Amino acid sequence: MKEVGFIGLGNMGQPMVLNLLKAGYKVKVYNRTASKASEVVAAGAEQVNHPCDVTTSDGIVVTMVANDQVLEELVYGQDGIGDRLGSDGIHLSMSTVSPETSRKLAHYHQEKGSFYIASPVFGRPEAAAAQKLWILSSGNHAAKERVKPILEALGQRVFDLGEEPGNANVIKLGGNFMIMAAMEAMAEAFNLAEKNGMDREAVAEVYSSTLFNCTVYNGYGSMIAKKMFEPAGFQLALGLKDCNLVLEEAKNTKTPMPLANLVHNRLLSSTAKGRGNLDWSALTKLANEEAGLE
């Protein structure tokens, strides 16, 4: 039986593990909040008590965690996976982290004789459940070939972005920035229509059926038109984290991103107003308030 370790059982991690089980993998799982493993354990996963216990020498470990700090602790920390992977082991990192973190972890794993593959994804929890994720992948070519069957069990397409480990993270952060910018644009356009006496949801349908017939406008357009920001598929606080990473990379590469600064202020203000646990599309509540529609 094929074996894989999996760390991180949040909104994305749980459906991903369930799909690996359906694909015939034997999956060992670890999560800091142990109770979150109950659903995947009931489906056949084996729960362990320490991160390092999900892997064996030469094995493959998938991580899907909230931020750079948590990811680094899982690799470097006590009971981490860094020493346990050993020669030819693979750390398949599917978290949204900075390109620099991926480069640093790739170097660390290389020194240990193992490999680091960055494979962040586009798609919300419902896409993860339906095996419809779009997966970005960068790192050692031979290691990418080894993990390809795992990625194909999780998504609808894998994009190979070369051997530079940070490439996938650059594309992921750029994509998330464009989603944020699109959400702000939708809010402003819908507000303009509503102020002229039109129904927001009807306007959203026009845009998503014509000029902007795509995943972001179809999905988030409906949420923004209805002002429906719960339950959170992706929390606003995590959106702020990602926008901080975008601006950090922009600074490091001397890339002006004025629109990213605007969206960052929206996310920061929303967090200050206690909206961090809402869906990140709730950043548009500020536009509604400024238009006198809240």
Rank of each mutant, 00 (worst) to 15 (best):
V263G: 03
N213Y: 02
R103Q: 06
F234P: 09
Y25Q: 12
S87V: 05
T55G: 15
I117Q: 06
G221R: 01
A287V: 03
D83H: 02
R124G: 04
I60P: 10
K241C: 07
F212K: 00
K241R: 13
I224S: 04
F212E: 02
A250T: 03
G86I: 00
N213V: 04
F177K: 12
L268A: 12
A193W: 04
L278P: 11
S270V: 04
D279K: 09
G166R: 00
L211C: 07
V158P: 01
L18C: 05
Y116M: 07
N288S: 15
M16R: 05
D242V: 02
V97Y: 04
I60Y: 11
A282R: 01
I60M: 12
Q156K: 14
G113Q: 10
M94W: 01
I135G: 03
E163H: 03
G44H: 06
V170H: 14
L247K: 08
E201C: 04
I7L: 04
G59K: 02
S138P: 08
C243V: 15
N252S: 13
N19K: 10
K227M: 01
M198Q: 14
E73K: 08
T253Y: 02
F159W: 12
G8M: 10
S208C: 08
F190H: 04
D279H: 03
I171N: 03
K2T: 09
R103K: 12
V48I: 02
S208K: 12
A225I: 02
L161A: 03
E152A: 14
D242R: 00
S98V: 08
A291K: 10
N31A: 10
W134V: 09
L268R: 06
L105H: 08
K148N: 10
G82H: 05
K36G: 04
S281Q: 05
L74Q: 00
L18K: 12
L211Y: 04
S208G: 05
A129Q: 13
V147H: 02
I60V: 14
C214G: 11
S119D: 01
V170W: 03
F212M: 11
A143N: 14
T210S: 14
L259T: 11
M228Q: 15
Y25N: 07
E201I: 00
L133E: 02
N218R: 08
H109A: 07
L136D: 09
R103T: 03
L267F: 14
P165G: 07
N169D: 07
V41F: 06
G221W: 00
N176I: 07
N176Q: 09
N31I: 07
G139R: 12
L9W: 05
N213A: 15
L240I: 01
A34G: 00
L136F: 13
L92G: 15
A168C: 09
E46Q: 14
I150F: 06
G175L: 07
V170F: 13
R103I: 01
D160K: 11
E163Y: 02
G139K: 13
E230Q: 11
T284H: 02
A143E: 15
P258S: 08
N288Q: 15
K28E: 10
D79M: 02
T253R: 09
V206K: 06
R103M: 12
S102Q: 06
L105G: 10
A237G: 00
K2V: 02
S222T: 15
K172L: 13
L238D: 07
D199T: 10
S57G: 11
L286H: 14
F159H: 11
S57V: 14
V54D: 06
Y30D: 13
R266T: 05
